[in-house]
Nucleic acid binder design. Structure first.
Lengths: 99, 99
DNA sequence: ACAACGCATAGAAGAATGTCAATATATTTT
DNA sequence: AAAATATATTGACATTCTTCTATGCGTTGT
C-alpha cells in the first residue's frame, strides 16, 4: 500500500467539507483576513482557524501575517497541483492553466 | 449556508481515502470487476463494496452488472464534472478535456 | 434442487473529523 | 503598562467515516 495515495487523499480532504468549500469560494474574490471570512460563515473563530489550517497544510491556501491580522489567499501552485493529481488518478488528460 | 457546498464536498469525498485513490488508479487500466480489485487491495470484500458505493454515488465510477459479477469503470462525465467543480471553487480556468 | 460463488447490506467497534468554550499568544491602541 | 483586538491552541464532546464479522441475495454450476 503506497503511502503516496495517502498523501493524495490528504490533499483532497481540503475540498471535503462544506465550510472549506465556502471559504474557497470567498477567496476567489481575493485575499481576505480571517475576520472577514468569519463575518460570512456561520462557525466560531476557533473552527474557522481549524479549517484554515487544513487548507494551508494542503497548500491550497497561503497565509500572510500582517500585524494582528492573517490574510489568506488561494495558492495557484497548490491548486494546480491538485488539478494535476485529479487528472492523474482519473486518467483524463491534464490541461495546464493558460493565463 | 448553501446546500450546494455540501453537495460539492460529497463529490470530493470520493478522493479523500487512500483505498479509493488506489481503486481509481487501478481503473485507469480499464474496467475491472470487484474481485479483480480485491486481489490488489488489502481490504475485505465488504470494505471494498463500501468504497465502491461511495465512488458510484459520487458518479466518479460506473457499475455494470453482468451475471454474478459487477464491473466498475471510470465515469468520464462524473470525472469531468469533478474537474469543473475544482476549477470553479479555485477560480482557475477550466480546460475541457481534449480527446 | 442444492451448493458454490460474487457482491451487497447490517450492525458494531474504533479512528478520524468537526465543533465549541476556554484560554494562550501576539499585536495594536490608549 | 494595561486594555483591546485578531488569531491560534487546547481539551472535550458529538458526528462521521473506516473497517470488520456475520449474513443476505442473486446467479451459476452440478
Amino acid at each position: 500500500m503506497d503511502t503516496n495515495e495517502k498523501r493524495i487523499a490528504t490533499i483532497f480532504k481540503a475540498f471535503c467539507d462544506e465550510n472549506r468549500i465556502h471559504v474557497l469560494k470567498l477567496l476567489i474574490a481575493g485575499e481576505k483576513c480571517a475576520c472577514d471570512l468569519l463575518d460570512e460563515i456561520k462557525i466560531t473563530q476557533p473552527t474557522l482557524s481549524h479549517h484554515m489550517k487544513i487548507l494551508c497544510d494542503a497548500e491550497i491556501v497561503i497565509p500572510r501575517k500582517e500585524g494582528k491580522w492573517t490574510y489568506y489567499s488561494l495558492n495557484p501552485d497548490g491548486v494546480e497541483k491538485a488539478k494535476r493529481l485529479l487528472s492523474e488518478i482519473t486518467q483524463l488528460q491534464h490541461q495546464p492553466t493558460q493565463n
